[in-house]
């Protein structure tokens, strides 16, 4: 037993220390109930962070190519890269989401209702619309590229689709798919997410943009495709979105305050700061300075893509840690919602 005279008991985090309740019984606390978490952590498995990441890539790639086309970019290789990346991402996304359900065979129940207040319901509809519209644009592209064969009915019909209009129609839903995942987790009782509710959507959307840009420039650089001017514009956009992402990460960490601890400490903190902040944002930013170069471009793109995945994964993991910490829940539920009168407490 420690010398109790030296330290004021209040400074001991409130642990009870008596002869019959020795101090090693750490679960006895002033507050809470045997350290059992008062809320439950999410139970989403690996499919969900992979979807958050892929959905973001598809969203970013589509939105970038659409805006670039509207600004007069006529690079066909760039357009193809954007459309096919989006197509692949949007084909895998629903599969991942259905796999994660407790009852995958009932996935269609998501489509029996439209619920404005539920980000998951709106996400289902947003994803459905975006995947179909961007998928038609990609099919039209494939038909024009001769991937569907020539002179058959299917190829002719897809080639006749108004691809530009489809891309423009899909763009707002693309933006939605990039952002809603952040809002979805923010609107829960998990302290670290709920605390950062306002910045979660912007952070995920910005990461969607940077990973989408990187996916396109990775493909173009790897294949040696694309016009010089496009690659330069891509690099510029990548730099700008990475700067914004850095700013949003910093603002989120500040906003999270004491509830952001899971993201700042331990293995998770190391993965987040090493993989996302340093590896996925700062290192690519440094690599993308100066003149456009193929090798550095490829490396930077890979780093951004990996960093984007680690960001989603780390934030989802941090949510578990946060929910496991009773103190976080109690203090958060208290401070966020100060009552009009604090009676009986």
């Amino acid at each position: 037993m420690t010398d109790v005279t030296r330290e004021a008991p209040q400074q001991r985090n409130g642990h009870v220390e008596t002869s019959h309740h020795p101090r090693k019984d750490d679960r006895r606390q002033d507050k809470g109930y045997y350290d059992i978490p008062p809320i439950k952590e999410h139970t989403w498995t690996w499919e969900v962070p992979v979807y958050f990441w892929l959905g973001g890539i598809g969203s970013g790639a589509h939105v970038v190519t659409t805006i670039a086309r509207m600004c007069g970019n006529k690079d066909l290789a760039f357009l193809r890269a954007g459309r096919y990346i989006t197509l692949v991402a949007m084909m895998l996304s629903p599969v991942l989401l259905i796999m994660d359900l407790g009852r995958p065979e009932r996935f269609y129940n998501m489509l029996r209702i439209v619920k404005w207040r539920s980000p998951m319901s709106m996400g289902t509809w947003g994803l459905t619309l975006f995947a179909n519209l961007s998928g038609l644009a990609a099919a039209s592209q494939a038909a024009r590229d001769g991937l569907l064969g020539r002179e058959n009915f299917l190829a002719r019909s897809f080639a006749a689709l108004p691809d530009r209009l489809l891309s423009i129609l899909a763009a707002p839903f693309g933006v939605f798919v990039g952002a809603y995942t952040g809002v979805l987790i923010a609107l829960t009782s998990t302290p670290i997410w709920a605390r950062n509710a306002v910045l979660m959507g912007p952070l995920f959307l910005t990461s969607a943009m940077s990973t989408g840009l990187s996916a396109i420039s990775f493909v173009l650089n790897l294949g040696g495709w694309g016009e010089r001017k496009t690659l330069e514009s891509l690099q510029k956009a990548e730099r700008a979105s990475l700067l914004l992402e850095m700013g949003l990460i910093a603002a989120s960490l500040l906003r999270m305050g004491r509830w952001g601890k899971p993201l700042r400490s331990g293995k998770l903190g190391a993965a987040f700061f090493g993989g996302t902040v340093a590896g996925g944002v700062l290192a690519p930013l440094a690599l993308l300075q100066g003149r456009e170069s193929r090798g550095r471009g490829i490396l930077a793109s890979l780093l951004v893509l990996a960093g984007g995945y680690i960001l989603r994964r780390a934030i989802l993991e941090a949510g578990k840690h946060s929910a496991r910490d009773p103190e976080a829940t109690f203090t958060f539920a208290w401070q966020e919602n100060l009552p009009l009168r604090d009676e009986n407490v």
Binding site: I39, K40, E41, H42, T43, W44, D100, L101, G102, R103, P104, R106, F107, N109, M110, R112, S118, M120, L184, I185, L187, T188, S189, T190, G319, A323
Partner: peptide
Amino acid sequence: ICNGCGYCIPAC
């Protein structure tokens, strides 16, 4: 109706 999406769990 429930398909086990798990969203209600962290919402509560």
